[in-house]
Design a protein around this nucleic acid. Sequence first.
DNA 1: ACCATTCATCGGAAATTTCCGATAGAAATT
DNA 2: AATTTCTATCGGAAATTTCCGATGAATGGT
Lengths: 110, 110
Amino acid sequence: MQTTIALESLAALSHPTRLNAFRLLVRHEPEGLSTGQLVDASGLSQSTFSSHLAILVAADLVVPEKRGRQMIQRANIEALRDLMLFLAKDCCGGRADLCEPLVAGLAECC
Amino acid sequence: MQTTIALESLAALSHPTRLNAFRLLVRHEPEGLSTGQLVDASGLSQSTFSSHLAILVAADLVVPEKRGRQMIQRANIEALRDLMLFLAKDCCGGRADLCEPLVAGLAECC
DNA sequence: ACCATTCATCGGAAATTTCCGATAGAAATT
DNA sequence: AATTTCTATCGGAAATTTCCGATGAATGGT
């Protein structure tokens, strides 16, 4: 994963509205949620949330799909994995000792 | 890990200057680097970098330590692990199927 | 054809972030 | 004690982000 893309992903997730929306979408995999449902959950105006959503989509963390006159949004788990791998490689790059607590924690998580 | 702290960590890492500095510090574990060395690597003014560093420290991703008249900065690997666990739990929370590609990728990383 | 629904985009105000030079404080050196 | 070195903080300018209401485009229903 390129640094530029990692930065865009981190920035996309670093806002409460966007992190909440992303987590909500992960919990609703693989059906997804409509944009309107996400707007309601956000408590913000429709236009404001729409621009937040656009940032998540631009970072490829959320993938939209047309269904009738509404858009179904889905979380991109692969993009999340790529981001985590990017962060992990900061440690693992030649430093397996640093990575050990990382994998240990993740192993017991799943 | 609390959502508030996760957001602060994500925001701290979502700027190129700060992400670079953090990665540099990870690669220099466990000796760390002085603030001055980080300033030089950043190419920014001393004051500008100092405020970036303060954001990393506030997020507990970097831990400073006095040594003589300079400050040695060290990456906090535990904080990185906590952030990754936070992100992973978005998938793993009752959804082991989603987490599978995550752990698989990390296993082959380390 | 017309209207209602759903969502993206525009225009602009307010808040925040980013950057710098200048200043201040703390510690080593002379 | 005076000076140099190292880093944090202040003050302020420029850029970016965040938020909203209004408008526009596309689709489905009447």
